[in-house]
Design a protein around this nucleic acid. Structure first.
Lengths: 199, 199
DNA sequence: GAATAGTGTGCAGGATATTGAACACACGAA
DNA sequence: TTCGTGTGTTCAATATCCTGCACACTATTC
């Protein structure tokens, strides 16, 4: 009947902090991979129009849609919507990671397997941990991922709040832009191979 | 060309894996704190009705709504929607996982050590060559580089017209966008770890 | 120039997310 | 009993998400 509720101020479509953040993130990710809206649409199952609107903060995507987009980028929903670097705007550069070919203490011996003066976006290490030894790392650059395979011994890998136990032959991949650690959880020396990828 | 497309499948309200998961999570969190729907509604700014529907997987919440709910619980969106165990931040490939045996013949056994569905710009392999075995590769994409370290045995690496002999512990980096090969040049089995970087 | 393919955007429309109010039920206190 | 209060659910109405199509624009090729 009558419309007693005219005071709806013709609300501007969407201006949530979530959406306005997602918009920049989406643009960035898509630009990084050189994907077109159409390519992302096909990869995610979300229509071009929707993606365009999301990138312009004109729409407030559904959880299902956001999830599909995250999947298309090969990441979790949290990784898509949350700002990993915003909280720690301080850039931590571990000078000794780059300057030393060898880094040895009682617990841990690291050997560089890739030339340090080469590309900055990949590093290859061999890490030897004595019994009870561990290697704890501050967060690397945003987007850094670490690939690991266990050669010998039992190792526990920790990234953020997650932890996994690995035996010889097991491999793991995890984010390295958060505090992470590699711990010798078995008896005797442990040997792992490590690959760091910067983006 | 024309596509009739009348078959709109009258999609059932909501049965996404995301929503069905969120429903249990929400119920659990709310029960843990002893909150009523009304309390959560006041704390989050989302209506009771909506919360009820979400808990019964009858609706597909918007990102903004999901975000407000997460805030009410004092957690991030990722922590709300992701299963701590299932969507773990560490991806593990077990030593006995045969799905990741990239290729096996009499001469050469290759095992993938990085998740296949991840970014395509880095791959991590373990290669085992029997005595006299070799792995010859056609040129990869331009700009691809290969990092290698010898774990066991003696190996000859060939890239373009260059060749180098490596012993255990030796490492090498070379272009992989030209014909290249890894040859077991010693006695017994040879084991190397390989990293391919696309640009 | 015309044709083709690619980019991102602007619609109309059906589907649905979201809300406030009405509803049914259980519990305890008058 | 009859309130009063709290629980969670259901309903009508609105806002908006989401899609398919058409549009404008830019290159590139014929």
């Amino acid at each position: 009947m009558s419309k007693p509720v005219p005071a709806k101020p013709k609300q501007a479509p969407a201006a949530d902090p979530v959406s306005s953040h997602l918009c920049r993130r989406l643009k960035q990710l898509r630009a990084e991979r050189g994907w077109s809206l159409d390519a992302l649409a096909k990869a995610s199952g979300v229509s071009r129009s929707m993606l365009s609107q999301i990138e312009r903060a004109k729409a407030n995507p559904t959880l299902a849609v956001a999830f599909r987009i995250a999947r298309a980028f090969g990441m979790t929903l949290g990784a898509l919507v949350e700002t990993p670097g915003a909280t720690s705007a301080v850039e931590v550069i571990r000078a000794d990671d780059h300057a030393y070919h060898y880094r040895s203490d009682k617990n841990c011996r690291i050997r560089t397997l890739s030339p340090l003066n080469l590309e900055k976006d990949v590093e290859f290490y061999e890490v030897r941990l004595v019994e009870g030894g561990e290697l704890r790392s501050s967060p690397h650059f945003e987007g850094t991922r670490e690939f690991l395979t266990v050669q010998k011994g039992r190792v526990r890998v920790e990234s953020a709040s997650d932890a996994e136990e690995l035996s010889p032959g097991d491999s793991a991949t995890y984010r390295a832009d958060v505090p992470h650690a590699i711990v010798n959880a078995g008896k005797g020396e442990a040997v792992v191979f490590l690959v760091d990828i910067y983006r």
